[in-house]
Every structure is written in structure tokens, then in C-alpha cells.
Design a protein around this nucleic acid. Sequence first.
DNA 1: CTGAAAGCGCTTACAG
DNA 2: CTGAAAGCGCTTACAG
Lengths: 335, 335
Amino acid sequence: MVTSHDVARLAGVSQATVSRALRDDPKVALDTKERVRSAAITLGYSPNPIGRALAVGRSTRVGLVVTDLENQFYSYVISPMHRELEKHGYELLLITESSEQAPVADLVAGAGLCGVVLATTTLDSVLPVRLADRGIPFVYFNRTTPNVPADSVTVDPAPGLEKLVDDLVRLGHTRVGAVFGPVNTSTGEEREQALRHILDDQGLTLARKHVRRGPFEFGTGRDAMQELLDLDDPPTVVICGNDVVALGALNTAVERGVRVPEEVSIVGFDDLPTSAWPLVRLTTVAYDLEAMSRQAARLLVERVESGESVEAGGVHTARFDTSYVPRATLGRVEG
Amino acid sequence: MVTSHDVARLAGVSQATVSRALRDDPKVALDTKERVRSAAITLGYSPNPIGRALAVGRSTRVGLVVTDLENQFYSYVISPMHRELEKHGYELLLITESSEQAPVADLVAGAGLCGVVLATTTLDSVLPVRLADRGIPFVYFNRTTPNVPADSVTVDPAPGLEKLVDDLVRLGHTRVGAVFGPVNTSTGEEREQALRHILDDQGLTLARKHVRRGPFEFGTGRDAMQELLDLDDPPTVVICGNDVVALGALNTAVERGVRVPEEVSIVGFDDLPTSAWPLVRLTTVAYDLEAMSRQAARLLVERVESGESVEAGGVHTARFDTSYVPRATLGRVEG
DNA sequence: CTGAAAGCGCTTACAG
DNA sequence: CTGAAAGCGCTTACAG
């Protein structure tokens, strides 16, 4: 392995000067810089980030903590987040919460990360507490927990849901069903509260038998739809906690030969690219997931680089607006 | 930050002993280990991986190099690969080749990685050369380049394609079209050669006007399908380079109101979970992508841990079998 | 503007 | 079985 010492020797300077020159320290003479740079190039040298991290006391590694890497949703998060971090000179490390081998907090603390994006926080997560204890900067992505203050990027479901419910009324739906996300997630909770509230305002109610609940996964929608369709009086529309759940529901309807939206309407939340496919045309609630992912990266980088603690300077929050995207899975009630 | 020195002080031993005890060195007395461990726990200490990496001379960080993080295909690769690496105590870092900021080779070399999985190698990639030059272990995933020998995990398209072509014949297809992957990828090349060869054996030919080509992306299938459907004599079946391309093609057919498979049949390759959706039911060629991803991780770990160079011990290759998965997008030719 | 030196937090021969 | 010491490849006060 070629080190800064090798470069120093070739350039005829000290190792310290190599370090400075390559970091473009203004105190280094221009011709010295040139000499060092060309020496570095001929030797194919690039500074070892591990040495650097140890010396500086922090790395440029950011962790993204998720539970379910297979979930389509996260593909669309990872990509823009990764790009944004890269732009700032940071790397993205994946961490799954399912890794129960070591307590995740230790793993995170031990992974030499300079900061963490939490994408699958539950209301009872201990990870935020642990991170705060150890002074590891982090930002909540999409989901939060009120117990531990931190920067966050979230979405406001109300605007989109309001428009959706307007449409529900217009189309004559009265038996409305829902497949909510888990109660222990802020997103699940918040969307449920918002929806119930808005339905209420319009004089609509959610019959208990028409409500299901479960993780934000395909299987949740699938199973819920099976049960709902087996009811004597199934709902005329099923509003799902997110698109992945809605896709599960939609596929189950299709599999059973139940026509959508003639026999049952289905609505999602997230507006994933898949939902816009001509084959799918899922009616849903949209927001700018890509901008949100970038924003989370940016907030974390700022937090890391400012070195400012949450207690000292307060918290940065970004809240994203939602809109209603009518497509083909929500229709007029028949009969 | 709590260091091994703090633990040493609390446990009343030397820092070196802390290091040994926590790594479960058999030379350390059992009661000493106990003392050190409990001290570590009370202090909430976990060894700093950066210090470790520097001392040992290598990290436990593995890079996954891809071009297109949004591509569905890679979601299904990342998850099992990540899990397998984690099992062996390694972390997964994402690297996109699009990052033209720094030559990727430098980035990889500079990122303090102990090894790399290359998932989007093209036949003319220079990255493998660079990695080999610098002695950075890597394994080819799915795609290879013959120029630089290295461990690899690939799929053999022939078995699946043979069964597919049998079915093509049985169903009366004669105007067969194809949307191949890029010629500068081993997978694109290999699947094309295999398909042409097998068609040939069955007396079928691929008219030049029925052939399209492009990156393994949704848009490729979409655009190709538009063109093919505009032909005076469109193909009766379109065989796509992979599922993502086939999904693009399928959605375009749907959008244009062209019935699949009555008016045109569509076939993919990969058997992504999406392809099995009741809404999709894509006829395709399958292989065990999850096992393949795990295998790649394992080969890399072995290579890294053995420290054996490719020249010295030769190369490990795993080749995965394919099977044919008939579903609903391939049908009998009408009329 | 440049160098010698200390130090980041570990691991690992080397003694004992 | 344990400790003192050197060293991994950097950065950064401190001198000059």
C-alpha cells in the first residue's frame, strides 16, 4: 500500500506537507502543491480514509437504518440519499434493525459512523435514546418518536387525504374501509388520525369491521383484502397505509377476480413509481419522496459538520406537503 | 468517547488486555475476561472499528458497485447480500459508478474497503483492471469481463431459454422479436447468443427489424415496444433481456390497449417478485437470485480472509441454473 | 511556508 | 497469562 510517506519521499517534502498539499491547505506553496500532486498521481496514491478518520476523530460514513431492505419504498429512498451524501463527500452504509445479533445501538456506535438516518423508527424505539446518549447525530426520516428530539423530515398527510375524501364523497362511497400501518409508528398513527378526522368532518365513519392494521408490507394488504372481501358487506373502498400495502390489496382483488374499482376501490399513499404503471394506475397520495430523501441527507450533514448539539441550537424539521393523485383504482360506487 | 483505556482503568488491567479479552483471545484468563467484559458493559464501550481497521491493516467494509440504484433488480440483490455480509461481521457500503466525480477506482481504493462486489461490470470496464492493479479483492456479480480474472457468480441462461423456446414453438410463434441488453455486458451478450443459438436449432429466426437493444431499464422495454408495435408486421412475441425491460414492454402494451398475450406475448428474465404478482403474471426465466447474492458475499469474504491472490490459487466461480416459468404473458398465436 | 512530533484507538509481536 | 511498546496512516498544533 502506498502511503503519504512514499509520496513525501518522491516529492522531496515531509509527510506532513503531503497531507496539507493534498487537502489543498492554503498555507502550502503552489509549486510545492504541484510537486506533491504529481508525485501522488504517479504513485497512484489516495489518502487512506481510515487513517484520516482516526486522526480527525470522525469518519465521513453515514448509516441508514431500516428494518426491511426488500421493501420497494426504500429503494426510492436510498438512491437519492446516496447521491446527496456523495455530493458532500460522505458514504452510505446500510444497517438493518433486524440485525438482532448485536443491539443495534452498539452496532451503530461501533461502526465508526459520523451520523445516522433513522428510517424505521417506531414510537417505542430505544435506538434514538441510545444515540442521543452517545452523542451520535441522527435525523428521523419519515417516522419520528416524540420522546427524543432530533432533526426530522416528515410528511403531512392531511392535504392529500382531504382531497381524497372529497373524492370519496363525490363518488358516493359510504362503506369505507382502511388498512392502517402499525400503531407504534408515527406515520401509521398520524395517517390514521388524519383520515379519521377528515372522514368525520364529511360525516363518514369507519366501521370497526372494515379496519385492518399491520406492517407497511405487501402481505399486510394481501391478507387484509382477503378478509375484507370475505365479509358479507365488504367496504366499497379500502384506504391503505401506503402504496406497498395497497399493491398487496390490489393484487389480491385481481387474483380473486374482483373488479377494481367497479366492485371495490383501493387507495394508497406514497405514489411510488410502480403505482403509476399503466398496469397498476393506483389512486394515491403523493409527496416528493426524492426531495425528502435528499433533505434528510442534507440535514444530517449539516448537523455533523456544525457539531452543534440538538440541545444547544434546537432542531431542524422539514415537513413535506401531500397532494391527491386520482387514477384508476378509485371509482364510483355501483348500484 | 469511551476507549479501551477507560475500560482498562476500570477493570484494573492494561489496555492490551482489554483488547485481547474483548476479542476472546484464549490466552486471557477467564476471570480477567469477565472483569473486562463487565467493565466494558458498564461503560457502554465497544471497540472503535476505525482504530481496529488501522491497526489490522484492513477494514470489514465491503463495497457494492452498481450504476443504477433505482433499478428494482438491485433491491433484491442488496438485501440478501447485506444479510450475508453482516453474518460474517462485514458492513455494506454502496458505491455508484455514475459517481464520475472521482474515478471510481480511486474512490474504491480510497474508501478503506477490504473488498468489492461488482454488479454492473461492462465488457470494457476499467474498474476491474484498476482493482487488480491495487490488489483489492473483488468478485463479479452477474456480469463479468473476460479480461481480468476474478471470482464470479453468474447465471447460465441456456436451460431456461431452451424450455422457453420449446414453448414458443408449441404455441406457434414464428415472428419472434427481442429486446436485448447492451452488447457491452456479458449478460446481454450471453443471453443474446444463447437465445439466437437455441432459436436457430428450432428453425426460428430473429428478423433484424424485430430486434431492439438497450440498457436493462424500464424505459428500454417501453420504447422498444412502442417501435415494435408500430411495425406493419409486429412480432408475435417479444423476448426481453430481463424482467425490468419486460415490465416496461408490458406496460406499454397495456397502455396502448394491446392485449397480452392475445395480440402480443412478452417474456422476461430474472423472475423478480413483481413478475409473480397476479396483476402481472410475467412469463420469465428464473434462477435463485437470493442465493446468488449470498454466494457473492461469501466468495468475497473468503477471498478477503484467505488473503490469497487470484494468481496464486485460481478463481472461484459459481454458475446458477435457470428454469422456465410459464405464466400469463406468453400465449398461443391467434389466427 | 515547512518540518518534527504527538496523537487518534486499536492490535500484536516481544518479553517476562 | 499479562504488560510495555511499537506501529497502522493520517492530521494538526507548535516551532521556526
